[in-house]
Every structure is written in structure tokens, then in C-alpha cells.
Design a protein around this nucleic acid. Sequence first.
DNA 1: CGTGTCGCCTCACGTCGCGTGAGGGTCAAC
DNA 2: GTTGACCCTCACGCGACGTGAGGCGACACG
Lengths: 257, 257
Amino acid sequence: MTTWTVGQVADLFGVTVRTLHHYDEIGLLVPSERSRAGYRHYTDEDLVRLQQVVVYRRLELPLDEIATLLDGFEDAADHLRRQRATVMTRLDELRELVSAIDRALEREMNDRPATPDDLKELFGDGFSDEYQQEAQERWGESDAWKQSAARTKRYTKADWAEVKAETEAVNSAFVRALQSGEPATSEAAMDAAEQHRRHIHDRFYDLDHTFHRGLADMYVADPRFTKTYEDIAPGLAAYVRDAIHANADRHGAATDR
Amino acid sequence: MTTWTVGQVADLFGVTVRTLHHYDEIGLLVPSERSRAGYRHYTDEDLVRLQQVVVYRRLELPLDEIATLLDGFEDAADHLRRQRATVMTRLDELRELVSAIDRALEREMNDRPATPDDLKELFGDGFSDEYQQEAQERWGESDAWKQSAARTKRYTKADWAEVKAETEAVNSAFVRALQSGEPATSEAAMDAAEQHRRHIHDRFYDLDHTFHRGLADMYVADPRFTKTYEDIAPGLAAYVRDAIHANADRHGAATDR
DNA sequence: CGTGTCGCCTCACGTCGCGTGAGGGTCAAC
DNA sequence: GTTGACCCTCACGCGACGTGAGGCGACACG
């Protein structure tokens, strides 16, 4: 056996068969022989040339430069010096890049995300770990949860304070409407519902009117949510649900499935 | 004017129009408005987004990562840390590359090319600077000259010593044939001519029999070459020319144009 | 002598971020 | 109405292969 097939050569030199095909295509390394069936057969001379190619490729010289270089029309040292220069340039660029990234990271961290302690300080134990855990398990796979997690991850303590203020503003709007005796289909109740939707939409996840209906139903169906509202004012949970549905109707949103 | 056209935006942000088209194509930055004629109109919001894109692009983040990042579903710091890691990896690779190139250069220089002094020592003043200069001007543009220059540039002193020995062997073969009274068309003379051709072919540039004829004619036409041969033996220049033509005929080479 | 498995072949499209025309409308100014 | 300057949509090119698809060829085994 004085010649080798592509597969053997590929294994010998640690390149892929496709690479050898490529070198053949562009004329960088054309095997000296072909079998009647068209199989490439590489001779010893071919392997010597491939060895050169592999060496220069490790130096990341472009293939066309390797070609002119191996055909003896140009000086290897020239190419190597040029390559060294371009690599050095790229090195400088990358060093600058790293420090730029570091600056960006620092900026990113400067509006530091709030810590769990910050959150407990603001929201009390309603934000307890086991509750978070359970919520994670129930909705962790949903797009809404993922988006919400990604966004809140970066919220600072100041952001959370705003969120809390907004929540309270929404709740008190509901309470005012409820206690003034206006029905859940009234303008005031629907406005509060819309305010509620926008609050979640802006702060947590994309929320359209249809999805909003689903939330509303859950406030009544899940006793934990129900309790939150009932603790503020008796009858508020159902009132909120009805107001949200009325608001969704007003915006022509499809009924929850 | 509350919106901007591609050209204006491109100038403002130092990107090309094509880049904006590309961002539109891949959905990274789709202008909020289009004129009836299909012109892109960028709003203030669009520009804010573009600003973000430009910043992250300077950090060489891939465009699809920038997209997911700007759509608020993932954390910027995560991406930045990943990017920092890959850049650091690449930095290490490039540093290793530089030293590999340096090692290659050193190897390259170790078979040090001969200096002009080395050459004068071997060939005397026949290799003088002004002669080299003139030759450069006469043939510098030809492929043969370029190839020869590229190859001899790397010749070591030892290589040149071999070249000199070969030259003398060729010349003495011609002289032996001439002085033994054999005609230029004799086997011995033609063999010397072939030896002469191969010597130039192997050491300087690709030389076929047809081109060889041209060289032969010049040895007689150019007094400087003629003198070189006549100094060795009277009548040698014309003898060499005839032997080369006879050898070319023997190999069925086309007559020089 | 058939069959299975592995290796080889030739297309040919995808990658990544645009650059660079080609061919043809649009807009404001003169 | 005519000129430029500007805009549009294709569509190919780059660099070095990766990754199938679809189809022969070679060799071992039953």
C-alpha cells in the first residue's frame, strides 16, 4: 500500500474528510491519483504537502496565502511576519474589548438588583421563600414567568418600591370604586382593571386582555389570592374579577378559552 | 420632522444603510413606520433600540443574542459574562498563536539566507550590486525573475556553494565536449545542455526547452554573457548556444518565437 | 453468490454580518 | 420636466469548512 484514501489521511493528520475535499476543490492539495471509481489516492508527496498546509493552518494563515507560499513563489517569512502583525492587532482589539465588557458589566451591576432581604423589608413575609418556590414549580415553564423572572432579576430596591406603590394605587382604585357602590361594570372599576393590567404588563410580563381574564378567574379560584384581596376589603376578590372581565369586554378581547 | 430615513439614521449612528437593512431583514430592528413608497421611517423609539444594538455590537455580541437580550427575556449580565469568557479564550489562543508564529519564524531564520557578503566571497565581484540592479530592471517584471527571487532569497551559503559547484560542473561538461572536438549536436554536448537546463530549472525558475532556446540566443547576443563564456574557452558561447538548440530539437521543443 | 456494512463519491445549502453592485422607483429642487 | 440625490428589492460574494442527501464501490461473512 503506497497510497492512502481520504479517510486514512484524515485520521493520520487529524483533519476531516470534508477538509481534504475542500483543499482538493480549491486546488490547494489535489491528490496525485484517482482510482477508476474516482476515489482519491494520496501519495507520499501529497502527504508532505499536507503536512505543510496543516502547519501553516495552525498559524491561521489564509488558505490562498498558503497556496502561493507552498508553490514557492513567495517567501514564508514575509507571510509569517504579516500574519504576526495582524494577530497582534487583533490581540490589542480583544484586550480593549475585554475592558469594554468589564465597564459594561460594572454599569450593569451598579443598578444592583435587590436582594431577598430588600424584598422582605418591602413586602414582608408574603414574599417568603416557600411561596416563591411553589410559584416557580407551578408556572416556571410558562413564557410569562420566564419573561417576568428575566425582568425582575434586574430590579433595584428603588424599582421594587415603585412597584409596591403602583400595586397599592391599583388596589385603592378598586377599593374606592367598590366602596362608592359603583358596579364592577362601571367606568371607574374598568379603569382600575386596566390600570391593573398595565401595571403587570409594564413591570412583569406581556399581558393582553384575554390572558388578563385568566388571571382574574384565578384570583377567585385560588384561596391564597382570594385571601389577599379579602383582607383588604370584603368582596374585593370577586369585584376585581368582574371588573377585569368587563374591561376585557370593553376592549373586545376574546373570552378566555 | 419626527421620523428619520435610513440615510439619516446611518449617518447619525455611524453605521451603513446596508446594516440597517440587515437589521430589518433579521427582525432585530424593524422601523416602526413605512411611507406609501416603502421608505423606512425610524422613530425616536427605534433610535433608542438602535443605540442599544450599537453598544452591544461594539462588544461583539452576536446579533441573535442582542435580539433576545433587547426583547427583555434574558439578562444582559449573563450574556456579557459569557462574551467575556469567549473573548478571554480567544485571547489565550491568539497569544499562543503569536508564540507559535515566533517559533516558526525562528526556524525559518535558522537556515539563514546568505548575506551579500557571503555571495561576494563565493562569486567575486561578478555578483556586484550594480549588475544585480540592472538585471532587476530588465527582467524584474517577468515570472521567471519573481520565482527565482523568491527561491534564492532563502538560499543559505551552503546552498549557494552547491549552486556554484553545479555551475562549474555544467561548464566543464561543455568545455570537455568542445575541446574533444565533438560537434555541438553531439550526444555529449546535448547532455551538457540538458544538464544546464535542469540546473537552472531546479535552482532558479521553471525552464522548459523552448524558453531555454531564448536563453541560449541571449548568451551570444549580450556581450556580457558572451564574455563570461569566452573567458572560459574561446568559441564556447556559440557552442553552448548550438548545443542548447540541438538539445531542444531532440526533445521536440517548439522553436523560439 | 447474495447481502450487509462501511467508506467513498458528488452536489448543494447553511454559517455570520454585512459589502457591493444591478435594476428600477421617489422626492425635492430648479 | 428634468436632474440628482436618495430610496427600494433582489441576489451574489466572502472563508473555511459542517452537514446532510442520494447514490456507487469495496470487502467480509454466510
